[in-house]
């Protein structure tokens, strides 16, 4: 091939492609299934995690894919590479333009999605929040992996039992604006104040979903508060980071730790008995249930307490909010059951 010829013809080729693209945009042509929601047989569900390429949301994606295949829906799964609210909004905007039937979003910044939820609903698109809620956004439904209060209380009850209900404790958390993490945090703090008056919360550290930063921050906490006896870490990277810090500081057995993380990350620490327990739920089931409920909403079927969902069982709606579905009870992972309950993440 003559490289000079190619160089000359390249701008022409680009111009040609641009004209074709513009024509496509103006005439509304596009890939199969990108037209209006009306007149299509298949339901199209767009699913937006907090971020992509992490094991937790990959497992949710797996469950969502299986459920979409089972019900015959078309699943679009995409999201930002970092937990950014602004980037999430771009995805929602695109999907509204594509007139999908339902958008399922795990919001990073719950307050910023309100405008987009309103816009989606004006186009008759159902909006579901999952993993984390945006209660003021006007969404149709929230699929909650566990009841926030139940998890928050389970964490502090577990820690209190390990600390004999007495002593100083601290929190490590990814951010202060993720709804789910902070709901668990608030419930844990409220429960500690009410049920464990001898326990004193001394510090809250932000770890930015970074295992190494979590290790650094917790190591500093251990030195800053020599009498510290307990830590709750609320996200999957803060728990291994805190466990590593306790191990390096030589305070295994002196400082107790619990939190929410994944079996893959926690296996060596739980086997070495650096911590006694951590909590999780089945993320595959969360993805699957979200898609099945989005499908049901898009088909105009009701979401009611006790409705039978294939592959899941009877629906359990929150007593305080009838638009919130509670998926399961928090699962306590220990050295004894970690192999049985491994969800592959």
């Amino acid at each position: 091939m003559n490289i000079m010829k190619l160089t000359h013809s390249f701008p022409c080729l680009l111009r040609g492609l641009a004209i074709l693209g513009l024509a496509g945009v103006l005439t509304g042509c596009g890939p199969a299934g990108s037209g209006s929601g009306e007149g299509r047989e298949s339901i199209r569900i767009a699913m937006l995690p907090k971020l992509v390429n992490i094991d937790y949301f990959d497992a949710c994606h797996k469950g969502a894919k299986e459920a979409a295949e089972a019900v015959g829906a078309q699943l679009i799964y995409d999201g930002p590479k970092s937990p950014s609210g602004a980037e999430q909004n771009n995805f929602i905007e695109t999907w509204i333009r594509q007139r999908v039937d339902a958008i399922c979003v795990a919001p990073n910044q719950p307050k910023t999605i309100r405008r987009f939820v309103k816009k989606a609903k004006s186009h008759d698109i159902k909006v579901i929040t999952w993993d984390s809620d945006a209660p003021q956004s006007g969404r149709d439904l929230f699929v909650n992996q566990v009841e926030e209060q139940a998890l928050g209380q389970a964490l502090i009850d577990d820690l209190a039992q390990q600390m004999d209900e007495d002593g100083k404790w601290a929190i490590a958390i990814a951010s202060l604006d993720a709804h789910n993490l902070n709901a668990w945090r608030r419930h844990a703090i409220a429960r500690a104040k009410e049920a464990y008056p001898e326990m004193t919360l001394v510090a809250t550290e932000i770890t930015k979903e970074d295992e190494n930063l979590a290790r650094q921050k917790v190591q500093t906490l251990l030195n800053a508060y020599p009498q510290l006896e307990g830590i709750i870490a609320f996200d999957s990277n803060s728990v291994p980071g805190a466990a590593e810090a306790i191990k390096r500081a030589g305070k295994v057995g002196e400082v107790h730790l619990t939190g929410c993380s994944t079996p893959k990350k926690m296996r060596p620490y739980i086997e070495d008995e650096i911590l006694e327990s951590f909590y999780l739920w089945d993320p595959t089931q969360l993805g699957g249930l979200t898609v099945r409920l989005a499908y049901r909403l898009a088909k105009g079927k009701p979401i009611k307490d006790g409705v039978e969902i294939p592959g899941y069982g009877k629906l359990n709606l929150s007593q305080s909010d009838p638009t919130t579905v509670i998926m399961s009870e928090p699962i306590r992972f220990t050295k004894e059951n970690i192999d049985e309950l491994d969800f592959g993440i």
């Binding site: 971020l51 992509v52 390429n53 992490i54 094991d55 590479k81 970092s82 979903e209 970074d210 295992e211 190494n212 290790r215 291994p240 590593e244 893959k264 990350k265 060596p268 620490y269």
Partner: peptide, 17 residues
């Protein structure tokens, strides 16, 4: 140093920012 201190390497999001 950064990668040999981690329990789990996450290529998609390690050291973002």
């Amino acid at each position: 140093i950064a990668v040999t201190r981690l329990q789990a390497i996450e290529p998609g999001r390690m050291l973002v920012g």
